[in-house]
Structures are given as C-alpha cells and as structure tokens.
Nucleic acid binder design. Structure first.
Length: 319
DNA sequence: AAGACGAAAGTGGTTGA
DNA sequence: TCAACAACTTTCGTCTT
C-alpha cells in the first residue's frame, strides 16, 4: 500500500527500514533517519461494497480526541423535554444546565487553545499521528479531571505529549519538549509526573535503545555503529547495568563507545549535546561499561594507534 | 588549544520512618 | 513531613593529544 520508493538522501541507498509504529524511516546503510513522520497510509475511511456504488458515504467525522469534544457533544437536555418534572427537580435541572454551560464553554475554550498548541508542538517535533492523538487524549482527560488548575495550560500540554511519547516508545527528551514548548524542563517533568499519577497512566521506564536511531542520525554515525551501540546496551542490560540510570545517559555512552570502536570518533561534548546530558554523565556510564563489559577491543584499538609494533589482531566487531 | 578525566559541591526527586 | 539517598549537573583544575 505504501508504494513510494525512496532513496536515502545521504548515501543513496534503497535499503531503508520502516518503523511504522514510530513513524520513522531509517537507512540501514548510513543510519540516517530519512523521514520521521510518515503519512499514515492505512488509515483509510471505510468504504462499503463497490457494487452499490452510491453508498460510499462516510458516517460522520472521524472520532478523534484532537477535536475538543471528540466530535460528539452531550448536553443537558432542553427545557421542553422536562415538562413532566416537578418543581424541585426542575430547579435542579436548571442549575445543572447553567453549570453545564459554564463548565463546558470554559473547557471548550481551554481545549481549543490547548489542542492547537499541542498540534504546533507535535508537528515541531515531527511526532507520528498516533502520538499526537494519544497526547490529545491525555490532555483532555487531564482537563476533565481539573488537573490544569494551578498549572499553566502549556505545561500540561507539554507533559501530556511527553507522556504519550513515552507510552508509544518514541521518547523525546525533556529538553526537546522544553525547547519546543518554551516551558522549563523541570516544570514539564513535574506536571508530567503529576498527570500520569492522577490519571493512573502506567509507563514503563523507557528503553535506552529507543533513543539510539535519532541520536545516531544527528551525529551522522553509520548503521554499523548504531547497531553496535544497541548491542552494547543489550549486553549491559543483561547484567543489570542499566537499572536506575537515566536512559539517555546510557544511550549516549553506548553511542560514544560504539563510535570509538568503529573509528568514527565523536567528542563527548558532541554526544552529550544531542543526548541532552553532560559529559560527566557520559564518562560515568562509559566507565561502567568498560569495567563491566569486555574492554580489550578498546585497548587494542588504542595500541594500534601507538604504532602497533608487534602483535595486532584485526578483529574489530563480533560478539 | 581542545578534549578527556575526575573531584567536589549543588539540585530535584524518591523513599521510608 | 522530614531526612537520607541516588542520579545527574555544574564547575573547575589537571592531564593528554
């Protein structure tokens, strides 16, 4: 169905890898993220049988949380519907109706504004539609639960997006959210935690591997280095080296080591910048990696640079 | 000069009494 | 609610390339 043929703009390769769930297209040869927001081709609105051609009508607008009320609306009924009610109930009815109007117009206004902001940010971050949809849902729930009170609308939007990204394994760093929303990173983290706690959204700790393609692409590292980094992370995970640590730090250190081993050296600062951590954190993770995994390869590489006088085995990459 | 390294002090969040 | 604690950051001085 998705029948467009693409070449990697970096190396011209046709060997592209499609990750539909992440909305990413990754070049297997050079690791470039070719396109990180794919058109969602299989979202095809139902058509009925071809032979009864006249009946190809759709059944209303698509149900989406990106519209403020999911395209539906519920009202407390009109006055003429309740002519049989007694006076007391009538009064109650009118009170409810009044409240409903107040609340719903307030919520409506809020949602309209918030969802357009949300759309702006998610297109800035090139998030796939599934994530945009999810964050809209989260935000809507948050508003309905009154969680925005005392917080800025923007920070809740940012928190909702962050949560949705995590939930869909398309993690963005807090810094990226901060940059695109203009909200302080800590503030986003706070509201994020608050929102997922209040809405009882369970989010598993994000896997460092999920960050690798994007970071590697930004650093222009090739696919070999990238898969080496993934390999390192998985090895580290098997020895419980990754628990409790920040996933971005691990991803950054793994990439740093992998780049070193493949002769594509990047400075710690460069890696730190794209990963949104400091050099110190990379060094700490890096040290742990070297001491807990096999570091002989690393040492051999360095020895080769030191004029490699006597023995040099040319084994670079295998497990 | 630039990059890598590491010590020391500070920050914000989690946990457990 | 408070204190201990771990992870991470900031800052800064030293060493290596």
């Amino acid at each position: 169905m998705s029948m467009y043929v693409k070449r990697c703009p970096e190396c011209g390769s046709l060997n592209l890898s499609y990750h539909h769930d992440k909305g990413e297209v990754i070049c297997r040869d050079c690791g470039l993220v070719v396109e990180d927001k794919m058109v969602d081709f299989d979202q095809e609105w139902r058509e009925f049988d071809g032979d009864t051609g006249a009946q190809k009508r759709r059944t209303g607008s698509p149900m989406s949380y990106r519209q403020f009320d999911k395209g539906l609306g519920t009202d407390v009924g009109r006055a003429e519907d309740i002519y049989k009610l007694d006076g007391k109930t009538k009064n109650k009815f009118f009170r409810l109706r009044k409240w409903q109007q107040r609340v719903s117009t307030a919520i409506e206004r809020n949602l309209k504004l918030a969802l357009s902001e949300l759309k702006r940010i998610s297109s800035f971050l090139k998030l796939p539609e599934s994530v945009e949809e999810e964050s809209s849902r989260i935000y809507t729930l948050a508003v309905q639960k009154g969680l925005v009170r005392g917080r800025s609308m923007e920070s809740v939007v940012a928190g909702a997006i962050y949560a949705a990204c995590r939930k869909h394994d398309v993690p963005r760093t807090l810094d990226e959210l901060a940059e695109s929303s203009g909200i302080d990173r800590k503030e986003i983290g706070r509201t994020y935690r608050f929102v997922i706690r209040e809405l009882d959204i369970k989010i598993l700790p994000s896997n460092p591997v999920d960050y690798i393609p994007r970071f590697a692409s930004e650093l222009k590292l090739n696919a070999l280095t990238q898969s080496k980094a993934v390999e390192i992370i998985e090895e580290a995970r098997s020895i419980a080296l990754t628990s409790g640590r920040g996933p971005t730090g691990i991803a950054a250190a793994a990439l740093y080591v992998a780049a070193l081993l493949h002769g594509e050296k990047r400075t710690q600062r460069a890696v730190a910048d794209v990963a949104g951590v400091t050099e110190v954190t990379i060094r700490n993770r890096y040290k742990e990696l070297l001491s807990e995994l096999d570091l002989e390869e690393q040492i051999k590489k360095k020895k080769k640079k030191l004029k490699g006088e006597d023995d040099d085995e040319e084994d670079v990459d295998e497990e």
